[in-house]
């Protein structure tokens, strides 16, 4: 399951990710912070187009497995209302040595943020809301399918 309407079970995912051949495990949790661009954030709401979001996360994990010798590659993204301090996305990678686990983990989260059809709406404490636009790469690349990952 790649998209969850329930709070992400980070501890349970971590417990399921230990592997006898892995000497390193990296867990990334993308968490909701209480401010963005100088404004106070109350909570976020995430929306996904689940059929394609699931398919793309599967493809991104497959690509990571092809690039690095991973024992474990897991990603889950939450949708619906997510409170400050809660986890919106979790990526776990495990490999024999730490370098691959770190690199693959970053690759997976970068591609999820830029490519997977998931959107956040920020709800501010002044009562206003704004749909987020993390990926504005097309303004630089001129192509909605070309991304710059190191930003």
């Amino acid at each position: 399951m790649f998209i969850s309407e329930q709070p992400l079970d980070i501890v349970g995912l971590l417990a399921s990710a230990h592997h006898p051949k892995a000497g390193a495990l990296v867990l990334f949790s993308g968490e909701v912070r209480n401010h963005n661009l100088g404004r106070e954030v109350d909570y976020l709401e995430y929306e996904a187009y689940i059929p394609m979001a699931s398919k793309l996360i599967r493809q991104i994990l497959d690509a990571a497995n092809a690039k690095w010798p991973l024992n474990i590659a897991i990603a889950q993204h939450r949708i619906g209302k997510v409170a400050v301090g809660e986890s919106a996305v979790v990526v776990i990678t495990a490999s024999p040595h730490r370098r691959e686990a770190y690199e693959a983990n970053r690759y997976i989260i970068d591609r999820i943020k830029h490519e997977v059809p998931i959107w956040k709406c920020e709800f501010f404490s002044d009562g206003s809301k704004k749909w987020g636009g993390n990926c504005n790469c097309h303004e630089v690349t001129g192509d909605v399918n070309k991304h710059i990952y190191d930003v």
């Binding site: 999820i112 943020k113 998931i118 749909w131 987020g132 636009g133 993390n134 990926c135 504005n136």
Partner: peptide, 10 residues
């Protein structure tokens, strides 16, 4: 047809 704005997950 689905129309997908730029992603803002994570």
């Amino acid at each position: 047809i689905v129309i997908l704005p730029p992603s803002s997950g994570g």
